[in-house]
């Protein structure tokens, strides 16, 4: 930098993006597109849709693949395709806007900078999501980046991709159940009671674990950890203290309500069966 005091290396930090959150459907879509990619294609890229919340968190809620061609030094993106599909998505959900783009593979390449530039024209501060479908490092790395422009005077010099924290805890996927999403083939969807059973079993093992831990600590086999102790105390105190009589009353009332409901529904079903028989009998006039 010995050119004189006039030249300054400028660093344009865009408004700081705090973090990004990804909806499982995006990941599923990306993987599906990757599996279905054209013969010669090395990677798939596409547009990410979502919203930016007030605290700067980018919610990535949807995505679609955009066909592209890549050679050694240039990238051709099907911009028409991108625009048509974006318009179609807007018709369904106008609240989802472009927030960035994704690519499979594990790092940011030269071509990525070009594509990123294109998306910067679509939206300010696009996020770039990379999904390592090749498991290059032996793990599923999913990363989000934003880019900063480095310029020398007025001349753009380079773009720097900075990784931002990405929240991968997918509540939506947990709701559906990981069992369904991670198995290659799941023969049957769990029904109400089966799901309940699994949950109860998990709760049971949790309680067992806590018991074991407390016993171990009491008997001196484990070093006590104050934080865990506080957690347990908090959990126990969150249990409302009700006198046994009051609890019995509440409990019995609820049980009876449920019995009444179950009875009513069985009664209705019986009624339906009778009505059907009567109707068929009435038809034989």
């Amino acid at each position: 930098m010995g050119l004189g005091s006039k030249t300054t290396l400028q660093f344009h930090p865009s408004t700081a993006t705090v973090s990004a959150r990804i909806h499982p459907v995006v990941l599923f879509n990306i993987c599906d597109c990757y599996v279905r990619r054209p013969d010669q294609a090395e990677r798939v890229i596409g547009t990410l849709l979502g919203s930016v919340s007030t605290d700067g968190t980018i919610e990535i809620k949807n995505s679609y693949a955009v066909p592209h061609n890549e050679s050694a030094d240039q990238v051709a993106l099907d911009i028409d395709y991108h625009h048509t599909l974006y318009a179609s998505h807007q018709k369904v959900n106008p609240k989802e806007v472009i927030v960035g783009w994704y690519s499979t593979g594990c790092d940011v390449s030269g071509g990525s900078a070009l594509i990123h530039e294109f998306y910067s024209r679509e939206v300010a501060n696009p996020v770039h999501l990379t999904v390592d479908t090749g498991f290059t490092n032996g793990e599923a790395s999913i990363k989000a980046y934003v880019s900063f422009n480095l310029s020398l005077g007025d001349r753009p010099l380079a773009a720097q991709f900075n990784e931002i924290p990405l929240d991968l805890r997918m509540i939506e996927a947990e709701r559906v159940g990981f069992d369904i999403l991670k198995m290659a083939v799941m023969d049957k969807l769990p029904n109400d009671l089966e799901g309940m059973e699994a949950t109860m079993e998990r709760l049971y093992t949790l309680i067992d674990d806590v018991y074991k831990y407390v016993d171990d600590v009491v008997e001196g086999r484990l070093a006590p950890d104050n934080n865990i102790g506080r957690f347990i105390a908090d959990t126990l105190s969150s249990f409302p203290k009700i006198s046994p009589a009051a609890f019995d009353k509440v409990f019995n009332d609820r049980v009876q309500d449920n019995y009444a409901l179950a009875y009513l529904s069985s009664l209705t079903r019986t009624q339906l069966a009778i009505a059907e028989k009567l109707n068929t009998a009435a038809q034989v006039l």
Partner: peptide, 10 residues
């Protein structure tokens, strides 16, 4: 209904 997933997804 049966649910299936690609190996990649799983």
């Amino acid at each position: 209904i049966k649910v299936s997933n690609s190996a990649l997804i799983s």
